[in-house]
Every structure is written in structure tokens, then in C-alpha cells.
Design a protein around this nucleic acid. Sequence first.
DNA 1: GCGACAG
DNA 2: ATCTTGTCGC
Length: 231
Amino acid sequence: MQPRLHHPWPEDEAAALALQRQLAGQVERHDRLDDIRLVAGLDVAYDEHSDRLVAAAVVLDAHTLVVVEQAVAVDVARFPYIPGLFSFRELPPLVQALGRLSLRPDLIVCDGQGIAHPRRFGLACHVGLLFDVPSIGCGKTRLLGQHDQAGPERGDSTPLRDGDDIIGSALRTQRGIKPVYVSTGHRIALPTACHWITRLCSKYRLPETTRMADQLVRREMAAGLGGRKED
DNA sequence: GCGACAG
DNA sequence: ATCTTGTCGC
């Protein structure tokens, strides 16, 4: 699977901000979905002693949640971690990993925010837009916004608000467990996104997609501790 | 100026 | 993100 949209890579923070403001206008916040048969999960791991990043893309059967394909990529960080500019750090290796998939997923779940972002352009929006695939942001913590306490049952949620805007949901994916932050990435409405995340969190707090991707990047990081700088 | 701040 | 396995508690 290759990107369908290309844009110049920003050289500095100011260019990255300008690019986000421009691309944010192209994000689609409503459902424009095909039958969802394949769901991909993405994750990135960091090596604290070098500047290496390992990215993974794992494709699951959307019905059985069985892994059907996976790919990894190693890269060197080209952008520092700056809250709000997260995608410019993680996107390069993620694009490589996604490019190594033979299957084209019908939905992508990202570890981070979608439009629950200062400029409404989190990592999930960026990935979804580049590949023109419906995408969801599912973060473990909040970047922006306020919310009430979500109900205690699996599937309960409460709106995440930034002023008058509803930018996402705090979603309880297991009974009595701390909620996750769900937001539209691209081509999927918030309620639909919450349904899918709930479905993907079949046994744990986090979606199986991100869990599988997380396990893969960790294995890969451990396996490549003394070698490859990138690939 | 102070606090917040995805991974 | 990362340091980190078993262990205390409901």
C-alpha cells in the first residue's frame, strides 16, 4: 500500500504548523466507509540510546481479530517530540511500514489523537489523509479538551470538548477501567469510531490492533539492539 | 509568568 | 516513549 497524497516535508516547526493548518481542511469527519474487513494497527517504539525508531503496521481480520499480515520499518528520528507536532516524528517510519503491506486495510487505528488536536490534525488525520483510508485516533491520554466522567460500563463514553467543539470521546473500553481518548482521524464519524474501538477492545483496555503493533515493535527493537541503524 | 503538554 | 517482575490487593 502506497500513499495517495504527497506533500513537501517541513524543515522546521513553523513549516510544520503551516502544513497542518492547510491539510486540516481536507479531513473528512463523516463516514465514508467500505465494508470493513481488514483493520490495521500502528505503533512506534524508541531507542533511548540512539535516535532510532521502529514502526509497525499490523493487519487484523476485522471479524475474528486474527493477525493476517504485519510489517516493520526502522528509521532515524528527524523531528523532535513536540506536543501537537507528533506526526512529523512518527510518520516517516509508519509510512515505510504501511508501504510494505500487500493488503490495503479498510480502517487504520492510530496510537494517538485524530482531530482532538489544537489544529484538528493529529497523527490519525495525517495517516488517513495520506493513504486515503478511514482512520481513528485512539490515545491512552489526552492532549487537549475537557470531559466529564464516563459511565462505568464497557462502551460508555462522554464527549471530549474544546470550548464549543466536540473533538472526541473519552471511551470506557472495559468495565471500571480508565477510558481511552477516541477521535475521528479521517472518513469516519465519532460514534462509528467509538463502536469500532469498543469492538477492537475485546479483552483489554487498548484495541487489539495497537496491542499487536506494540508487541511487534518491542520484539523488533529487542532483536535489533546491536545492529541496523535503519533499513 | 505559570501550567499543560498524544508518544 | 523509557526505566521494569513479581507482587499486593480487590
